Simulated scan of single mutants.
Amino acid sequence: MSRIGKKVVVIPDGVQVTIEDQTVTVKGKLGSLTREFHPGVQINQEENHLSVAIKNREGNSALWGLTRSLLSNMVVGVSKGFSRVLEIQGVGYRAAVNDTVLQLNLGYSHPIDYALPSGVTAQVEKNVVVTLSGMDPETIGQACADIRRFRPPEPYKGKGIRNAGEYILRKVGKKK
């Protein structure tokens, strides 16, 4: 039995949910999100909350909690939004934003221009703290992973791009 799937998703004021077959559209003050769900899951809407049920337990019970979490993320995304913070550490490493392009100087011979996906916005503070925000947590997470891949943190000096609050296990250098 799914403990997450049993919980209802509360729909806050200002958010509209439309269910057609297995396609759910959620509209809020930040925009709208649409997703098609697996046919083995049934989504019900009562007054101000959504509930999820599985049609048969064989093979579809794993989708119960997943569907509820995806619905919850859609509702939170259009009402409040999501954000992730990346920290850049290293001498001369910095970032800047021009429209929808994130420019990164990471110690290479050339600057790296990363085109932000649609629906994701970036803010740079102090040239080394990048905040990505938007409605869809999957898109934001993938953008963070793509940016981090340009210069992952290395274990000796700790230079590179890391998530905010991430601890990098440091190694001892060569002894003389």
Rank of each mutant, 00 (worst) to 15 (best):
D146N: 12
F82N: 06
V130G: 00
E36P: 01
K80A: 05
L104H: 10
L104G: 12
E154I: 02
I54L: 07
V9I: 05
Y156L: 03
T139C: 10
V15W: 00
M1T: 14
Q16A: 11
K174Q: 12
S79Q: 10
R57S: 14
N98Y: 15
P39G: 04
K55P: 05
V26C: 07
G77E: 02
N60S: 12
H49L: 03
I4H: 03
P12W: 04
R170A: 07
V10M: 14
N44T: 08
S72R: 14
A115E: 11
G31V: 13
K174L: 08
A164L: 07
T67W: 00
I161F: 05
P12D: 11
S69G: 11
T131S: 08
R84K: 14
S51Q: 15
G28P: 00
N56V: 03
E58Y: 15
S2D: 14
G173H: 07
K29I: 15
S72M: 12
V8S: 15
N98M: 15
H38S: 09
S51G: 11
S72V: 11
G90I: 05
I140E: 08
V97F: 11
G28S: 03
G158I: 03
E46I: 13
V172H: 07
V41Y: 01
I4W: 04
G165L: 02
G14Y: 13
V24T: 06
P111G: 14
A53K: 06
H38P: 11
V130W: 02
S69C: 14
T131R: 07
V78Y: 06
G134H: 05
V101K: 14
A122I: 01
V10W: 15
G165T: 09
N56W: 00
V76C: 09
